[in-house]
Design a binder for these strands. Structure first.
Lengths: 212, 212
DNA sequence: ATAAAATTATACCAAATGGTAAAACTTTTT
DNA sequence: AAAAAGTTTTACCATTTGGTATAATTTTAT
């Protein structure tokens, strides 16, 4: 039986796919799935619509790939319960800092995710139950142990996470509102630093976990 | 000069317009502006597309009206600095409770607003600067006076508002995520009560304003 | 009752859009 | 060099969609 050796993917292809994915991410972020046309993505990527379809055979396929890239990035960068022996202050502080860094560095990714969730998670529902929920439950258990040990004051851990997620992601998803209200044309790195300090202090104090 | 007396709007018309607006709000909330077709709104409202266009001459007009109804509701229900002499605890607690009540009772409105903001506030930009920003700045000043009087600990008031908004609206906008992670088919009134308690305690403690 | 205004139904259309078919061209492998 | 695989371009199409034009019907004011 003769096995044909497949040609190695040209480096050009990888570059082009990345260019397409970035263009698509930006489009999905600012217009949503329905509001994004394949032609506009192709234009942003500098290729023809038909050529875009050669690389991603349908708009759904393109959207799925964009979501997958986002999730890979997030899972890679966001682990809460890394070190069982780290202090709550350390863990929470770096969690908030990292989440805000994601909002700062990947605002489009955050917005695509926000669109997906607001629209009822039509694509991500299964993934959330199978992957995110177990991780979430582990993290909740860790917080409960902290409470049992008296390291932080008693709170509902689930709502603690909802609050941290919401208040870090708002700097990406609702950045236009924040800009308009603060009279800025865009959010600078400095604004994210201030937000990180504010939120860390805020959460730690609310948990009675400033020390250590 | 003869002035024709215009016919009074039939009560039927008011009812029908409300039915249309509710259907449109739900559609815009779950699909966004681009993802919503006039025909689907008409179907949900139980009329023909052409008849819908008779009442709202374009999709833009319909969307603008939906936004306006939402803003009217929110402005009516959400006043922060009502009473200068109320204690921070009273003001913040009722603010959080009322914001959560809006998320509970008008989740679609919250989602339509979220879509608008994530997409860059193409319609609401001007309104936010002319109406919301002054109100925001008044509220910020009130918080600053609280700090100056030593009623609460020093924080950046702007970020305090961003956090409260984000963490109350997430129970509407991201409800599917919360449901999936908590293993519920929907969020009940009880869940909102727990969230209100959690958030009130959390924020007041972070501000050092539990007493009074 | 009747004219005028309001409402609903019928027929239609131009533009946008996601996608297919297939030919032409380029690069890589043998 | 030739075959094969990969890539790009050209031409086209069916469906969806927002919207217009207009006729038919119902409701209201006089």
């Amino acid at each position: 039986m003769i096995m044909k050796t497949p040609r190695k993917p040209s480096s050009n292809r990888v570059l082009l796919e990345n260019r397409i994915l970035r263009a698509a991410e930006k489009a999905f972020a600012t217009k949503g799935f329905s509001g994004t046309s394949m032609e506009s993505v192709a234009d942003s990527a500098g290729i023809s619509k038909q050529n875009l379809i050669y690389y991603f055979s349908s708009k759904e396929a393109l959207y799925h790939k964009v979501l997958q890239v986002i999730l890979d990035l997030w899972v890679e960068k966001m682990v809460f319960s890394d070190d069982e022996d780290a202090s709550p202050k350390q863990v929470i502080e770096s969690y908030i800092v990292e989440k805000l860094a994601l909002s700062r560095d990947y605002p489009d990714a955050s917005k695509v995710f926000a669109h997906e969730i607001i629209n009822g998670a039509p694509v991500l529902k299964d993934y959330m139950v199978s992957h995110l929920k177990p991780q979430f439950e582990r993290d909740v258990q860790l917080v409960k142990r902290w409470i049992a040990k008296g390291l932080i004051d008693p709170v509902e851990p689930e709502h603690l996470f909802f609050t941290i997620w919401a208040s870090t992601q708002t700097y990406a998803d609702f950045s236009i509102q924040i800009q308009l209200l603060m009279g800025k044309t865009k959010l600078e790195a400095d604004d994210f630093d201030v937000a990180a300090k504010f939120l860390s202090n805020f959460v730690l104090k609310a948990l009675g976990a400033q020390n250590e």
